[in-house]
């Protein structure tokens, strides 16, 4: 990681609601190198989308508020930029593919108009040329009958076709980073594979970096160079994808990987992580995963039964564990692992 395209540093975001302040991101840090694909994995509500929208400064404010941190694009902090400069960044340097192809396209504008708008918005070319370029891009993302389809409205297209149009829009100005927020979640499986293959191909053709947000571990396994696991507004583990799957360190990552089907043949029930995610408006102090953590629970049980003289993991209830590097580029935030194997390094 010599050069960093995007560098998110201890980003903290909160929402002001009528019930008080709800914190969504508790100091998220990660970076993306040019041409690299980073997967951001986590369950619903863990802050994946908030992270993505914060990078482009698309969260409505109020109610959202960036409480701290930096978002550096090639060393330049995006957070204090005036709105006008930010418009230059959006779509041109960083673009975004949204989750819902059904609702992410404007119903009253033709698909061609919507793609062409990317060119005119950034003053790249005139209207007529923009329209031609839009058709060329639709062809590039393999929209069937591109020149005809460009004159159609989103409702006349299938979900897969709409997502192709979204991709054309996101890639039109060859941005250096594309944020793909669950690009295939709303599509059926065969279309998912096609869209991922298309993204893969485009990524190689345009040599762009991708921040791939998903809850599908299979997708990141096949697609991402590095993977970050998010839990409750934090990154709890980040590593080169191969290392993460080979040797998950954080108990949450271990739980996620164990619950994938096909790992233990013959098992009737898939293992699951016990417990539920705490409410974001009332996050307890200490490690956010402590309540559901097998290590923490075992230590506590040993102490309760008198097996152990003291609660060896009492720290989990007090201190939020920081990220610690266990192997080159492999970081995780866990008190237990730090004690168990961390000190070796």
């Amino acid at each position: 990681m010599t050069e960093r395209l995007l560098d998110v540093r201890s980003l903290r975001v909160a929402f002001e609601t009528e019930q008080g302040t709800v914190r969504a991101l508790f100091g998220v840090s990660f970076s993306v190198a040019p041409g690299e694909t980073v997967g951001l994995v986590g369950e619903s509500g863990c802050g994946k989308t908030v992270t993505a929208l914060s990078i482009l400064r698309l969260l409505p404010s109020p109610p959202s508020k960036v409480e701290g941190g930096e978002i550096l694009l090639r060393g330049e902090n995006l957070l204090p930029l005036p709105e006008k400069r930010m418009c230059d960044v959006r779509g041109k340097a960083i673009s975004m593919i949204f989750q819902e192809p059904m609702s992410s396209l404007n119903p009253v504008l033709t698909v061609g108009e919507q793609v062409a708008e990317v060119f005119t918005a950034h003053g790249v070319c005139g209207k007529r040329e923009a329209a031609e370029r839009a058709v060329a891009w639709l062809r590039k993302v393999r929209m069937p009958d591109a020149s005809l389809r460009a004159r159609e409205y989103p409702h006349q297209m299938s979900g897969g076709m709409r997502q192709r149009a979204m991709i054309a829009m996101a890639l039109a100005l060859s941005p250096s980073l594309v944020i793909a927020d669950e690009p295939t979640t709303a599509l059926d499986v065969t279309i998912q594979a096609q869209i991922m293959a298309l993204l893969q191909e485009m990524r190689e053709q345009e040599r762009m970096a991708v921040l791939l947000i998903t809850h599908d571990l299979g997708v990141v396994h096949d697609f991402a160079d590095r993977t970050a696991i998010m839990y409750l507004g934090r990154i709890v583990e980040i590593a080169p994808t191969r290392d993460l799957f080979a040797d998950p360190i954080h108990p949450y990552t271990q739980g996620l990987l164990a619950s994938l089907p096909g790992k233990q043949p013959g098992m009737k029930r898939l293992p699951s992580i016990p417990g539920t995610v705490p409410d974001l408006s009332a996050v307890p102090p200490g490690c956010p995963f402590a309540d559901r953590c097998p290590f923490r629970q075992a230590a506590f049980a040993r102490f309760r039964s008198g097996e152990a003289p003291a609660d060896s993991l009492e720290i989990c209830d007090r201190e939020d564990p920081p990220l610690f590097e266990y192997a080159p580029g492999h970081l995780a935030a866990c008190h237990y692992q730090r004690a168990a194997r961390g000190e070796a390094r």
């Binding site: 418009c87 975004m96 918005a121």
Partner: peptide, 15 residues
């Protein structure tokens, strides 16, 4: 609040 408005903003269109 619709998604397509977010899409439009993400394209870099002025407000």
């Amino acid at each position: 609040r619709q998604d397509y408005v977010a899409t439009a903003r993400a394209k870099g269109l002025p407000e």
